[in-house]
Computed example of a mutant assay.
Amino acid sequence: MDQANPLPTYRREMRAGLRDIAPIVVAAIPIGLLFGAVAAAKGMSTLEVMLMSALVFAGGAQFAAIETWIHPAPIATLAFATLLINARHVLMGASLTPKIRMSRVQTFLGFFFLTDEAWALSERRAMERPVTGAYWFVMAVVLWANWTLSSTLGAVLGLFLGDPERIGADFAFTALFIGLVAGFGRSRVTLVTVAVSAGSRPSCISSSGPLARGLGRARRHRRCLSCRSQGGALMSLDTTTLLAILAMAVVTYITRIAGLFVADRLVLTGRAKAAFDAIPPAVLVSVIAPTALTTGWPEAIAAAITAVAAFRLPLLGTVAVGVACVVVLRNLI
């Protein structure tokens, strides 16, 4: 029936993409606003912030870049740092490529939008069915538009934004990723992978390391925003800044599509296939661990409570529990 009339299936896939990405969109808004405010405090114009978010679209790399941003922008240094931070995209792309139902051209285009969140949702969906182009593009483009708009708005508002820790917004992504890990089930492979990944030094490959540091530095920037100019003119565009943004964007895209070529050369069976299937929870735990295990007792306890809730609640409910717990615990401990 679906082959005779593919439109209903197409619409179902689009609705599924919107449904799955909705909690992540909510969690991403305060982080995008924060990035825009920090970037503006560093002297970037609203147009430059918008271009970086739209072309690079990698929160960890963007926060890391802003953390050390100077004028003129050090293009080679920023490109190399972006390569190191986004190297995990190679594994993510290689893991996801066999599970998507898109043409080669669609995949090359679609992987521009490859992020931790879109990839994790797709891996979870691939446990039940192939990932279609309708599902991927709706989910990924909505997240891209949300990140671009929220960071641009953050650059405009800047001074008026409050401390994200006050409402637990900085913990939203940690809670979100805990919920995504729970979605991969309680198999022995998943549990062993989670334990090993959490016990390693994941901040070396995780986007949460730069993100957590960026959040901390954002609070320090906010204290002196009132005595600094709010970036340049709204629509000004410095040539060196543009070249730095383009370099970061190109390096990020290369890491995203490199997994396609890796997947073409892999023939996995037996234990090798099981190990490769363990990549999703391993990468997600590497994103969670720096915040959940090394930030402080409130975050560690909130992460444990969120993990329990993740097996009983939908994704948005898990995020809400995590944020509420970290707010309460920070006021008590």
Rank of each mutant, 00 (worst) to 15 (best):
D2M: 08
Q3E: 15
P6R: 00
T9S: 13
L18C: 13
I21P: 13
I21Q: 12
A22P: 05
A22K: 06
P23Y: 09
V26W: 08
I31L: 14
I31S: 05
G32R: 00
L33G: 10
L34M: 10
F35N: 13
A37N: 11
G43T: 11
L47A: 11
E48F: 03
M50R: 01
M50W: 06
M52L: 10
A64Q: 04
A65G: 02
E67V: 04
E67P: 03
I70S: 15
P72V: 06
P72C: 09
A73C: 02
I75K: 01
A76F: 06
L78S: 00
T82Y: 05
L83R: 01
L83V: 01
A87C: 06
A94H: 01
T97S: 02
T97G: 03
I100F: 09
R101G: 03
R104L: 06
Q106K: 04
F111Y: 12
F113E: 00
L114G: 00
T115D: 06
T115W: 00
E117D: 07
S122F: 01
M127S: 07
R129Y: 03
V131M: 03
T132P: 01
M139T: 08
V142C: 09
L143P: 11
L143E: 10
W147A: 11
S150I: 10
S150F: 11
S151W: 06
T152R: 13
T152V: 09
L161S: 10
I167G: 12
D170M: 08
F171N: 11
F171M: 02
A172R: 05
F173I: 09
I178P: 05
G179N: 06
G179R: 00
G183C: 10
F184N: 13
F184T: 14
G185C: 11
S187W: 09
S187G: 15
S187A: 13
R188E: 11
V189R: 09
V189M: 12
V189F: 01
V194S: 06
A198Q: 03
S200A: 15
S200C: 07
R201N: 12
S203Q: 14
G216D: 11
H221P: 04
R222S: 02
L225S: 04
R228L: 12
S229I: 09
Q230S: 14
G231S: 10
L237T: 12
A249N: 05
V250D: 04
V251A: 01
Y253T: 01
I254S: 00
I257C: 08
A258V: 10
L260V: 14
L260D: 04
F261A: 09
A263P: 10
D264C: 03
R271S: 13
F276Y: 13
D277C: 03
A278M: 06
P280I: 04
P280C: 13
S286C: 15
V287E: 08
A289K: 07
P290R: 08
T291E: 08
L293F: 12
W297K: 08
I305C: 14
V308P: 00
V308A: 15
A309N: 14
A310F: 09
F311R: 15
F311V: 14
F311I: 02
F311K: 15
L315C: 06
L315D: 15
V323I: 09
V323M: 15
A324V: 10
N331C: 02
L332A: 09
L332T: 15
I333R: 01
